[in-house]
Computed example of a mutant assay.
Amino acid sequence: MKLTTLIGAALLATTAIASPALADGPIADRGEAVERAHFQRDRETILSMAGDYKVRFDMQESTPWMEGYEPLDRKISGGYESVRVIEDTGTKIVLQHLLVVGDEGEEFVIKHWRQDWEYEPEKILAYTGPNTWEWKTMPERMRNGRWSQTVYQVDDSPRYAGWGEWQDSQGIRRWRSNWTTRPLARRDAVRHPIYDRYEGINRHQLTPTGWIHWQDNTKMMPDASAEDGLKPVVQEYVLNTYDRFDGYNTGAADAYWAATKDYWAAVRDMWAEVAEANGGITIEEEAETGTVISGRLLTIGNELQEGTIAQDAAIAEARALIGEATAPGAASTRRTAAAGADY
């Protein structure tokens, strides 16, 4: 057999073996009936993440990629979280997370993170560096059959976005993102570490008792000598577990949302207007609070529930805050670390 024939056969064999592992490759058109079935199954999976949960956040730095760096000790925390569907247009599903904290009879609600799922979007609002989010085109060849997930912070400002396919393998239903850039979570930001962002892959997987959010994070720091201006510091693995549980005051979450949902809908619209008008969002962030207006936006929500501010006044103040904080030149050029929750 000729050498070229042997080489060709070897390459074909290698391709045949490797192809199933190319999870990020384009999804070939599977026909309308099959695509519709996948779409409906995906929707059911995303919607099933709504409910009431006992949540466990498990964070562990592991492998140092930089000599002399000592990985942090493992950190575990948790609480109670209600997840509600606040929008469903068919191709877009919005899930709002609400933390319920405090002793029995004295519970209070903290508006937590939000996740927006969109089917075959043309663009996503991606984090591109300190204080900055920009619209990024989702590659056309990668849109078929895929969903984007955009995560928003407690004040509905953006946090990160990625895209991926819902798949069934080994009897498990899972979604895996592309490589996604994220600002620091509060657990890291308040320490003012040498790294300033995560490059990670997010996975959402259904379990018999709920679902998990699994993060595979590489913590990165600026380095002008590196090819892309960044170098890795340490690896981190985060497992957020949501187990269905209603043994807490779930009514507190629903009462808070009933009182504030129209206000937060207006806030979401304001952020969307800014992103569309400016090609993204630039806003200064602080390690302790997230965006510089996050604390006040949340406080307005509490005042609205308590009846100490009228809804029109609440929305007007929020609009002014967002407009001023996102105006050109409003964000400081100093290095700041974004502060979010453990997601």
Rank of each mutant, 00 (worst) to 15 (best):
T91P: 14
S82Y: 03
D243W: 00
P139W: 14
E324H: 14
A23G: 08
M142K: 12
A252W: 04
M220H: 07
I17N: 14
I309R: 12
Q60R: 13
H97G: 09
E134V: 07
L206F: 01
T128L: 01
Y256A: 01
V34H: 15
S225M: 05
E165D: 03
P158H: 01
K231F: 10
D216H: 10
I110F: 06
I201S: 04
G51V: 14
P222R: 13
D246I: 09
T291E: 10
H204A: 12
P71L: 03
F245M: 02
K136R: 15
K231W: 06
L3N: 02
E288T: 11
R43F: 06
E165T: 05
T14A: 08
A316I: 06
H192Q: 09
T45L: 04
D42E: 02
G90M: 08
A314F: 06
P26C: 11
D228N: 14
R296G: 07
I293Y: 15
A338H: 08
V100M: 07
E118W: 04
T291M: 10
T299H: 09
I300R: 15
I7D: 00
D216A: 08
D312K: 07
D156A: 13
L321Q: 09
W257H: 04
T209H: 08
G295N: 12
T326S: 03
P232A: 06
E317G: 07
A258F: 03
N131V: 00
T180G: 10
L6I: 15
A331K: 11
E140S: 04
T4M: 10
T218G: 02
Q235P: 00
W271G: 03
A287S: 13
I212P: 08
S19I: 15
L321E: 06
T128C: 08
A318S: 13
T299L: 10
W135I: 00
A259M: 00
S294R: 15
A23V: 07
I110T: 11
R186A: 14
V274N: 02
L298T: 01
A37D: 10
G25T: 00
T5Q: 12
I27E: 05
D223P: 11
D342T: 11
V101H: 08
K123F: 01
R84W: 06
M221T: 02
Y119W: 15
